[in-house]
Amino acid sequence: MTVSTFTANSAANTVKDKTESKKGMVYNTKDLNLWYGETHALKNINLEIQENDVTAIIGPSGCGKSTYIKTLNRMVELTPIVKISGDIQYREKSIFDKNFKVEDLRTHVGMVFQKPNPFPKSIYENVVYGPKIHGIRDKKVLDQIVEKSLRGAAIWDEVKDRLHENAYGLSGGQQQRLCIARCLAIEPDVILMDEPTSALDPISTLKVEELVQELKKDFSIIIVTHNMQQAARISDKTAFFLNGEVIEYADTDVIFSNPTDKRTEDYITGRFG
């Protein structure tokens, strides 16, 4: 076992001791390793993620942030060369269990992508996509879901008069909030966000950040970010990834004020990355 893994484990344990009594755990990652062919992209990851937290994943480009978050809903396996060892438990069930279908996992765990990716359909059709997939046909119910989800994503007022217009007519920031609404419409438990603001302007970024603060009341959020200020502003816990390893995982204020590992300190003070 490498020194860094040890650091990560001990950090995780300290955090766990403080909070376990109050909050449940949504994800427990145990000795996770992932390869793209020969590339060892994730190395011995051990992480426990608490419910109703915003958990930020930071680290330089190529350190495995996207790979990790895509493993949590098994989207990473769409790449055929991927091999995985170790385990991830979601609400105490292994996500790799044969009886736990990926379709089922993904209705509990929604995802928002780096680049806004609405369907080339109307705003309304975008939001009802998930519910329809899961068998809801009743127009009244769908209408309710649309309003609730769009309100939840703080975009209702901007689009309520143009629900049947194509989503491609929205600005990038609006498209991203629509994608968040589309994700809320499946009534998930966890929301995964992979650099959701990296394609957005500062004002849209701010809106999404405020939204994340709002959403954490009802959801557990795991957010990858390139932007350390963002992690510091919005997250409760922060995991620092480097070269496929978790170097340090702790309360966000601890990571940013008093990191244990030299490499964490170097990264957050901008010495590399």
């Binding site: 989207m75 990716n117 998930g130 997939i133 589309r182 994700c183």
Partner: peptide, 11 residues
């Protein structure tokens, strides 16, 4: 990315 959006919602 359109396929991913769909798979991501459990389709």
């Amino acid at each position: 990315f359109l396929r991913e959006a769909s798979y991501g919602m459990g389709a």
